[in-house]
Amino acid sequence: MKIINTTTISDNVKDMCIEANYYLSTDMNSALKNAINTEKSELGKKILNQLQENLDIADKEMIPICQDTGMAVFFVELGQDVHIEGGSLTDAINEGVRRGYTDGYLRKSVVGDPIERVNTKDNTPAVIHYDIVPGDELKITIAPKGFGSENMSRIFMLKPADGIEGVKDAILTAVKDAGPNACPPMVVGVGIGGTFEKSALMAKKALTREFSERPTIPWVKDLEDEMLEKINKLGIGPGGLGGTTTALAVNINTYATHIAGLPVAINICCHVNRHTTRVM
């Protein structure tokens, strides 16, 4: 059994909040850079170049990549042989968020109640998804999520008869409706199957997948390729101002589902697709 102290967890979470908001992952970075060469619109190219410059400035001058430093979303994989010492794991994560968003000059964008809407002033509470896994490691992924793109996300409870064509329509509809609002080029996370909430969770988690990691199920891999190509033919382009780079990736997760249903969730993310992972 491994013992992990909550202080270690808070310290790591604090650093991860800052890291995620100032630097993009290497795969996102190079996908954005490569897009400059393939983009057909002059204005689109100009915008993609500005996004490169933006990443440089964020890094060198320590200014967050985007002012919407998001709601802090976590995927936590807790090994069943890990013992957490020093208090509640959830409290430790929230403490890390509190310190990260304060010390890191990140925007506090969370209101404590969806109707009364009073800012909690420290960006807590985070949204935390737990998974119990075999082993003695604690793996924490943070994915701060901006709401320009979150607001454009959709869920469709399709009928089994809608089949794969229905799924394709759903994805294209969501991306088309999102358009310029979601700060394209986007990353599109899709969850197919499961239940209502399972599909949404899969879509969210798909956004944290490395681009080089591809699905093992052949039809899922094909669907990702086909959808990316189709989305980039929509014409939306960088900033929604026209062009051929509308999405950098389509990441799809699937799960078993009920005989009567075909849930499809589409979680749209902007080009500031932030995520970082640490294993303790």
């Binding site: 915008i47 996004l51 200014i63 700060c183 500031v272």
Partner: peptide, 8 residues
């Protein structure tokens, strides 16, 4: 429009 996500 200003470029979304170019806050820095």
């Amino acid at each position: 429009a200003a470029v979304g996500g170019a806050g820095a």
